[in-house]
Design a protein around this nucleic acid. Structure first.
Length: 309
DNA sequence: TTTACAATAT
DNA sequence: GATATTGTAA
Protein backbone atom coordinates (compact mmCIF):
# COMPACT_ATOMS: atom_id res chain seq x y z
CA UNK A 1 0.00 0.00 0.00
CA UNK A 2 1.19 3.38 -0.75
CA UNK A 3 1.08 6.02 1.81
CA UNK A 4 -2.17 7.79 2.11
CA UNK A 5 -2.37 10.47 -0.41
CA UNK A 6 -4.44 12.32 2.07
CA UNK A 7 -1.40 13.59 3.75
CA UNK A 8 1.36 12.55 1.58
CA UNK A 9 3.23 15.56 2.65
CA UNK A 10 2.61 15.30 6.30
CA UNK A 11 5.42 12.92 6.62
CA UNK A 12 7.68 14.91 4.47
CA UNK A 13 9.95 15.73 7.28
CA UNK A 14 9.73 12.42 8.93
CA UNK A 15 11.24 10.75 6.00
CA UNK A 16 14.17 12.97 6.17
CA UNK A 17 17.27 11.70 7.76
CA UNK A 18 18.69 13.17 10.83
CA UNK A 19 21.86 15.14 10.40
CA UNK A 20 24.02 12.48 11.87
CA UNK A 21 22.49 10.00 9.60
CA UNK A 22 23.75 11.90 6.72
CA UNK A 23 27.04 11.47 5.13
CA UNK A 24 28.69 9.11 7.45
CA UNK A 25 30.79 8.60 4.50
CA UNK A 26 33.85 10.10 3.22
CA UNK A 27 33.65 13.61 2.32
CA UNK A 28 35.88 15.56 0.18
CA UNK A 29 37.23 18.63 1.75
CA UNK A 30 38.25 20.15 -1.43
CA UNK A 31 35.71 21.65 -3.64
CA UNK A 32 35.43 20.25 -7.09
CA UNK A 33 36.51 23.53 -8.40
CA UNK A 34 39.67 23.52 -6.50
CA UNK A 35 40.35 19.93 -7.13
CA UNK A 36 39.99 20.46 -10.76
CA UNK A 37 41.89 23.64 -10.82
CA UNK A 38 44.77 22.12 -8.96
CA UNK A 39 44.59 18.78 -10.49
CA UNK A 40 43.98 17.07 -7.25
CA UNK A 41 42.27 13.80 -6.74
CA UNK A 42 40.60 12.52 -3.71
CA UNK A 43 42.77 9.83 -2.32
CA UNK A 44 39.68 8.33 -0.88
CA UNK A 45 38.28 7.60 -4.19
CA UNK A 46 39.35 4.73 -6.29
CA UNK A 47 40.40 6.99 -9.04
CA UNK A 48 39.21 4.99 -11.94
CA UNK A 49 41.02 5.48 -15.14
CA UNK A 50 43.85 7.78 -15.76
CA UNK A 51 42.68 10.32 -18.20
CA UNK A 52 44.49 10.28 -21.44
CA UNK A 53 46.44 13.44 -21.95
CA UNK A 54 45.25 14.24 -25.36
CA UNK A 55 47.36 17.24 -26.01
CA UNK A 56 46.72 18.17 -29.52
CA UNK A 57 43.24 17.15 -30.12
CA UNK A 58 41.31 19.42 -32.30
CA UNK A 59 39.96 22.31 -30.40
CA UNK A 60 36.50 21.16 -30.84
CA UNK A 61 34.02 22.67 -28.48
CA UNK A 62 32.31 19.44 -28.89
CA UNK A 63 30.13 18.04 -26.21
CA UNK A 64 32.60 16.95 -23.71
CA UNK A 65 30.79 15.24 -20.99
CA UNK A 66 33.98 14.44 -19.36
CA UNK A 67 34.61 17.68 -17.72
CA UNK A 68 32.95 18.52 -14.52
CA UNK A 69 34.34 15.51 -12.94
CA UNK A 70 36.18 16.65 -9.92
CA UNK A 71 38.23 13.58 -9.88
CA UNK A 72 39.44 14.01 -13.32
CA UNK A 73 42.33 16.14 -14.02
CA UNK A 74 43.39 17.37 -17.33
CA UNK A 75 41.35 19.96 -18.88
CA UNK A 76 42.02 20.35 -22.42
CA UNK A 77 39.34 22.68 -23.34
CA UNK A 78 41.85 24.99 -24.28
CA UNK A 79 40.48 26.68 -27.20
CA UNK A 80 39.60 30.26 -27.08
CA UNK A 81 39.25 30.90 -23.43
CA UNK A 82 41.99 28.52 -22.74
CA UNK A 83 43.08 27.50 -19.32
CA UNK A 84 42.11 30.67 -17.70
CA UNK A 85 38.76 29.78 -16.36
CA UNK A 86 38.71 26.07 -15.99
CA UNK A 87 36.37 25.28 -13.19
CA UNK A 88 33.90 27.85 -14.19
CA UNK A 89 33.18 26.60 -17.61
CA UNK A 90 33.11 23.00 -16.69
CA UNK A 91 30.22 20.77 -17.24
CA UNK A 92 28.77 18.79 -14.48
CA UNK A 93 28.04 15.16 -14.74
CA UNK A 94 24.68 14.08 -15.89
CA UNK A 95 22.14 14.17 -13.20
CA UNK A 96 20.30 10.99 -12.56
CA UNK A 97 16.83 11.35 -11.25
CA UNK A 98 16.55 8.66 -8.66
CA UNK A 99 13.18 7.86 -7.18
CA UNK A 100 14.17 9.72 -4.08
CA UNK A 101 15.23 12.76 -5.92
CA UNK A 102 12.10 12.63 -7.95
CA UNK A 103 10.07 12.35 -4.82
CA UNK A 104 11.49 15.53 -3.52
CA UNK A 105 10.67 17.02 -6.81
CA UNK A 106 7.08 15.89 -6.68
CA UNK A 107 6.74 17.00 -3.13
CA UNK A 108 8.08 20.38 -3.95
CA UNK A 109 5.75 20.72 -6.87
CA UNK A 110 2.89 19.63 -4.72
CA UNK A 111 3.69 22.13 -2.07
CA UNK A 112 3.86 24.86 -4.55
CA UNK A 113 0.90 23.87 -6.51
CA UNK A 114 1.04 23.07 -10.11
CA UNK A 115 0.65 26.59 -11.19
CA UNK A 116 3.37 28.00 -9.04
CA UNK A 117 5.68 25.20 -9.66
CA UNK A 118 8.30 26.65 -11.85
CA UNK A 119 11.83 25.42 -12.16
CA UNK A 120 13.41 28.02 -10.02
CA UNK A 121 11.02 27.68 -7.16
CA UNK A 122 11.01 23.97 -7.30
CA UNK A 123 14.72 23.92 -7.24
CA UNK A 124 14.77 26.10 -4.19
CA UNK A 125 12.29 24.04 -2.35
CA UNK A 126 14.12 20.90 -3.08
CA UNK A 127 17.29 22.47 -1.92
CA UNK A 128 19.34 19.69 -3.21
CA UNK A 129 22.89 20.56 -3.61
CA UNK A 130 24.09 20.53 -7.11
CA UNK A 131 20.68 20.72 -8.58
CA UNK A 132 20.40 23.42 -11.14
CA UNK A 133 17.44 25.18 -12.51
CA UNK A 134 18.11 23.57 -15.81
CA UNK A 135 18.00 20.18 -14.24
CA UNK A 136 14.67 20.87 -12.74
CA UNK A 137 13.34 22.52 -15.84
CA UNK A 138 14.24 19.57 -17.91
CA UNK A 139 12.70 17.17 -15.51
CA UNK A 140 9.65 19.29 -15.11
CA UNK A 141 9.19 19.29 -18.81
CA UNK A 142 9.11 15.59 -18.84
CA UNK A 143 6.99 15.38 -15.77
CA UNK A 144 4.37 17.59 -17.30
CA UNK A 145 4.30 15.36 -20.26
CA UNK A 146 3.74 12.48 -17.95
CA UNK A 147 0.94 14.20 -16.12
CA UNK A 148 -0.62 15.06 -19.38
CA UNK A 149 -0.65 11.49 -20.36
CA UNK A 150 -2.04 10.48 -17.05
CA UNK A 151 -4.83 12.91 -17.45
CA UNK A 152 -5.63 11.69 -20.85
CA UNK A 153 -5.64 8.17 -19.70
CA UNK A 154 -7.61 8.65 -16.57
CA UNK A 155 -10.28 10.59 -18.31
CA UNK A 156 -10.30 8.24 -21.21
CA UNK A 157 -11.29 5.50 -19.00
CA UNK A 158 -8.46 3.65 -18.21
CA UNK A 159 -6.64 2.49 -15.76
CA UNK A 160 -3.98 3.88 -14.47
CA UNK A 161 -2.80 2.61 -11.68
CA UNK A 162 -0.52 0.23 -11.51
CA UNK A 163 -0.50 -2.50 -13.12
CA UNK A 164 -1.01 -2.40 -16.34
CA UNK A 165 0.96 -4.32 -18.19
CA UNK A 166 2.65 -4.63 -21.25
CA UNK A 167 1.91 -2.14 -23.90
CA UNK A 168 4.45 -0.48 -25.89
CA UNK A 169 2.81 -0.85 -29.14
CA UNK A 170 1.39 2.42 -30.21
CA UNK A 171 1.78 5.94 -29.11
CA UNK A 172 -1.60 6.08 -27.56
CA UNK A 173 -1.20 2.88 -25.76
CA UNK A 174 -1.44 3.03 -22.08
CA UNK A 175 2.13 3.30 -21.15
CA UNK A 176 1.74 3.93 -17.52
CA UNK A 177 3.95 1.09 -16.82
CA UNK A 178 6.65 1.78 -19.22
CA UNK A 179 10.14 2.15 -17.98
CA UNK A 180 9.88 5.85 -18.28
CA UNK A 181 6.93 5.93 -16.04
CA UNK A 182 8.61 3.83 -13.48
CA UNK A 183 10.40 6.75 -12.08
CA UNK A 184 7.33 8.88 -11.98
CA UNK A 185 5.30 6.04 -10.67
CA UNK A 186 7.67 5.69 -7.80
CA UNK A 187 6.22 8.81 -6.34
CA UNK A 188 2.51 9.20 -5.97
CA UNK A 189 1.16 11.96 -8.01
CA UNK A 190 -0.96 14.26 -5.93
CA UNK A 191 -4.49 13.94 -7.07
CA UNK A 192 -5.04 17.55 -7.81
CA UNK A 193 -2.24 17.40 -10.28
CA UNK A 194 -4.49 15.65 -12.63
CA UNK A 195 -7.48 17.77 -11.91
CA UNK A 196 -6.63 21.33 -12.57
CA UNK A 197 -9.94 22.59 -11.52
CA UNK A 198 -10.35 21.81 -7.97
CA UNK A 199 -7.58 21.78 -5.46
CA UNK A 200 -8.27 19.49 -2.55
CA UNK A 201 -7.89 22.10 0.05
CA UNK A 202 -5.72 25.07 0.22
CA UNK A 203 -5.79 25.27 3.88
CA UNK A 204 -3.06 24.09 6.05
CA UNK A 205 -0.21 23.29 3.87
CA UNK A 206 2.97 22.29 5.38
CA UNK A 207 4.90 25.45 5.92
CA UNK A 208 8.09 24.03 4.81
CA UNK A 209 10.23 24.68 7.78
CA UNK A 210 11.67 28.08 7.12
CA UNK A 211 14.92 27.13 8.62
CA UNK A 212 17.51 29.65 9.34
CA UNK A 213 20.24 28.99 6.97
CA UNK A 214 23.84 28.56 6.93
CA UNK A 215 25.07 30.21 3.95
CA UNK A 216 28.41 29.73 2.56
CA UNK A 217 30.15 32.55 0.95
CA UNK A 218 30.80 30.77 -2.19
CA UNK A 219 29.85 32.18 -5.46
CA UNK A 220 28.56 29.15 -7.13
CA UNK A 221 26.81 26.04 -6.21
CA UNK A 222 28.99 23.73 -8.08
CA UNK A 223 27.65 20.41 -7.06
CA UNK A 224 28.44 19.27 -3.63
CA UNK A 225 31.00 16.73 -2.92
CA UNK A 226 30.17 13.22 -3.50
CA UNK A 227 29.28 11.23 -0.53
CA UNK A 228 29.56 7.76 -1.74
CA UNK A 229 29.93 5.90 -4.91
CA UNK A 230 27.04 4.11 -6.37
CA UNK A 231 27.47 2.51 -9.65
CA UNK A 232 24.87 3.48 -12.09
CA UNK A 233 25.35 1.35 -15.03
CA UNK A 234 23.25 2.49 -17.89
CA UNK A 235 22.05 -0.96 -18.28
CA UNK A 236 20.87 -1.16 -14.74
CA UNK A 237 19.02 2.02 -15.03
CA UNK A 238 15.83 0.25 -15.69
CA UNK A 239 16.07 -1.58 -12.49
CA UNK A 240 17.41 0.82 -9.96
CA UNK A 241 19.61 -1.69 -8.37
CA UNK A 242 20.74 -0.60 -5.04
CA UNK A 243 24.43 -0.57 -5.24
CA UNK A 244 25.02 0.73 -1.83
CA UNK A 245 27.63 -1.73 -1.10
CA UNK A 246 30.15 0.26 0.81
CA UNK A 247 28.32 2.89 2.65
CA UNK A 248 25.12 1.99 4.13
CA UNK A 249 24.71 -1.63 4.06
CA UNK A 250 21.55 -2.20 5.95
CA UNK A 251 22.05 -4.83 8.59
CA UNK A 252 18.85 -6.51 7.78
CA UNK A 253 18.99 -5.71 4.19
CA UNK A 254 16.45 -3.05 4.43
CA UNK A 255 16.71 0.62 4.19
CA UNK A 256 13.94 2.40 5.76
CA UNK A 257 14.96 5.93 5.60
CA UNK A 258 15.70 7.42 2.32
CA UNK A 259 18.32 9.91 3.10
CA UNK A 260 17.71 12.86 1.06
CA UNK A 261 18.22 16.40 1.61
CA UNK A 262 16.44 17.77 4.49
CA UNK A 263 14.12 20.63 3.96
CA UNK A 264 16.56 22.67 5.80
CA UNK A 265 17.29 26.07 4.64
CA UNK A 266 14.13 26.81 2.94
CA UNK A 267 14.14 30.35 2.01
CA UNK A 268 10.86 31.90 1.72
CA UNK A 269 10.72 30.62 -1.73
CA UNK A 270 7.10 31.32 -1.63
CA UNK A 271 7.63 34.57 0.05
CA UNK A 272 9.89 36.19 -2.34
CA UNK A 273 13.49 36.60 -1.65
CA UNK A 274 15.71 39.42 -2.43
CA UNK A 275 19.39 38.71 -2.30
CA UNK A 276 20.70 35.64 -3.94
CA UNK A 277 21.66 34.11 -0.71
CA UNK A 278 22.29 30.48 -0.80
CA UNK A 279 20.84 28.30 1.76
CA UNK A 280 22.43 25.19 2.98
CA UNK A 281 21.55 22.56 0.54
CA UNK A 282 21.76 19.04 1.35
CA UNK A 283 24.78 17.08 0.55
CA UNK A 284 23.19 14.05 -0.73
CA UNK A 285 24.79 13.53 -3.98
CA UNK A 286 26.79 10.73 -5.13
CA UNK A 287 29.36 11.19 -7.64
CA UNK A 288 29.99 8.25 -9.71
CA UNK A 289 32.64 7.66 -12.20
CA UNK A 290 31.73 5.35 -14.88
CA UNK A 291 34.56 3.94 -16.75
CA UNK A 292 32.89 0.84 -17.83
CA UNK A 293 33.08 -0.58 -21.21
CA UNK A 294 30.87 0.98 -23.69
CA UNK A 295 30.35 3.98 -21.62
CA UNK A 296 33.69 5.46 -21.37
CA UNK A 297 33.59 8.94 -20.19
CA UNK A 298 30.04 9.12 -19.11
CA UNK A 299 29.99 10.40 -15.61
CA UNK A 300 26.86 10.45 -13.72
CA UNK A 301 25.75 12.43 -10.81
CA UNK A 302 23.27 10.61 -8.76
CA UNK A 303 21.59 10.57 -5.46
CA UNK A 304 21.75 7.76 -3.07
CA UNK A 305 19.76 4.89 -4.22
CA UNK A 306 17.82 4.12 -1.15
CA UNK A 307 14.85 2.08 -0.39
CA UNK A 308 11.81 2.84 -2.31
CA UNK A 309 8.90 4.94 -1.43
C1' DT B 1 17.92 41.14 -17.81
C1' DT B 2 16.04 37.07 -16.06
C1' DT B 3 13.05 33.04 -16.25
C1' DA B 4 10.02 29.64 -18.26
C1' DC B 5 8.99 26.79 -21.78
C1' DA B 6 9.37 24.14 -25.95
C1' DA B 7 12.26 22.10 -29.16
C1' DT B 8 16.28 19.94 -30.35
C1' DA B 9 20.74 17.69 -29.53
C1' DT B 10 23.65 14.34 -27.31
C1' DG C 1 15.24 6.89 -23.59
C1' DA C 2 16.93 10.19 -20.26
C1' DT C 3 19.08 14.53 -19.71
C1' DA C 4 21.38 18.71 -21.57
C1' DT C 5 21.46 22.45 -24.28
C1' DT C 6 19.59 25.87 -27.10
C1' DG C 7 16.21 29.11 -28.92
C1' DT C 8 12.46 32.02 -28.12
C1' DA C 9 8.89 34.38 -25.79
C1' DA C 10 7.12 36.74 -21.57
Amino acid sequence: MREDDSNWFARWEEELPSPDELMPITQTLITPDLALAFDIRNSNQPVPPPPPPLPTSSGLPSPNHNNGNPSLSSAELGSGTGGDEPARTLKRPRLVWTPQLHKRFVDAVAHLGIKNAVPKTIMQLMSVDGLTRENVASHLQKYRLYLKRMQGLSSGGGGGGGGGGGLSGGSSTVGVDAATDHLFASSPVPAHFLHPGRPPNSDHFLPFVPVSALQHHHHQQQMAVAAAAAVAHPQLQGQYHRQMGHFGSPPNGQFDHPFLARPAAQQQAVHRMGPPVHNAPVPGYVEDLESANGNAGRKVLTLFPTGDD
